[in-house]
């Protein structure tokens, strides 16, 4: 197992390198260092001398990929790609253009993201499974049909609608919780409850329908028929046997998401004014703050790889037939 994990970690290095180069290419295709300088200095009274000065003081006065003026290995090492990317592998995210330590910002902002994402995931999972099991249990009945129709309707509605409707109904009309905002410590619960509910409801349609399919697939298998033939009730078959086996794809699907919870939800955080990492990324893109964008993409890729490794490991936990070598 340890060897496998080590192997996967080593595989991750070229992937991260690739992600880094692609991010770099994409960003600098759209924004040249001149564009970035002008975006930060503003477009009033700015001339090329100030632009050049900004580039020099932020280390953007070097070539992107190859420094033809340098000699030997410096042809590569004295380039923007090398200088701006290599540090990421040491988890040195550097400073934003606003002179803020990105690592400190990430540490601070991941907690609000997690405060919404974790309960939304856990409670959402519980609700989705319950709803899916009910539909599967009452399969081919009116309850099932109604459930599927509701799921389809819910899937068809944009998350934005749930957010606006939730804020309008729960906060504006009924005055139960604040419309938006955030607070540290225990005081955060009243700000979190609405985005969590919205997060759960917006994912309910797709989640429950997917899980229902998994249950129905399991329920068609031979072992279920055998169990029924043994005289076990439908409830026992569903909850004891089907549930356990259907849990394998559910859990592996969820485990891959766990590290990504850190990244946060862009829409929820934006509308509910949650100071998480989702909005951090959005702000960085809007303000053309390349160090933050680069760090966040790197972090996202890293977490995704971590999620995949965790998924593989979780297979061995939930399915004894799987062995990692």
């Amino acid at each position: 197992m340890l060897r496998y994990i080590l192997q996967r970690v080593l595989y991750a290095i070229p992937i991260l390198l690739g992600v880094n180069i692609i991010t770099f290419l994409l960003f600098f295709t759209i924004n040249s260092p001149d564009d970035m300088a002008r975006a930060h200095l503003g477009d009033r009274h700015i001339q090329q001398a100030e632009v050049d000065n900004w580039k020099a003081s932020h280390g953007y006065d070097k070539p992107l990929f190859i420094n033809y003026d340098a000699q030997g290995v410096k042809k590569i090492s004295q380039t923007l790609l090398f200088e701006k990317s290599l540090r990421l592998f040491m988890f040195d995210f550097g400073y934003s253009y606003g002179d803020r330590d990105i690592k400190a910002d990430v540490k601070e902002r991941m907690w609000p993201s997690l405060a919404i994402a974790v309960p939304a995931l856990l409670i959402g999972l519980l609700v989705n499974i319950t709803f899916a099991m009910l539909m599967a249990f009452f399969r081919a009945s009116h309850i099932d049909t109604l459930g599927v129709v509701i799921c389809l309707a819910m899937m068809s509605i944009s998350t934005l609608f749930y957010i606006i409707a939730g804020q309008y109904l729960i906060s504006k009309m009924l005055h139960w919780v604040p419309i938006s905002g955030y607070s540290d410590g225990l005081g955060a619960w009243k700000f979190i409850i609405l985005p969590v509910i919205v997060g759960i409801i917006s994912g309910l349609g797709a989640g429950a329908r997917w899980y229902r399919t998994l249950y129905l697939e399991e329920m068609g298998k031979d072992y279920v028929r055998t169990a029924r033939a043994k005289g076990l009730s439908d409830g026992v078959v569903l909850f004891k046997h089907v549930f356990k086996n259907a849990l394998i794809p559910i859990l592996t699907g969820v485990v891959v998401l766990i590290p990504l919870l850190l990244i946060g939800s862009l829409l929820l955080e934006s509308f509910f004014a949650i100071p998480g990492l989702g909005t951090y990324m959005i702000d960085a893109i809007a303000q053309q703050d390349f160090p933050i964008v680069r760090a966040m993409v790197f972090l996202g890729a890293l977490l995704y790889i971590a999620g995949l490794i965790l998924t593989d490991i979780s297979y061995t936990w939930v399915d004894p037939r799987v062995r990692i070598r």
Binding site: S171, S180, F271, A273
Partner: peptide, 13 residues
């Protein structure tokens, strides 16, 4: 001053 990116929640508050 609270950070409120979106116009709708800002207006409702």
């Amino acid at each position: 001053y609270s950070l409120e990116r979106e116009a709708i929640p800002r207006w409702n508050k």
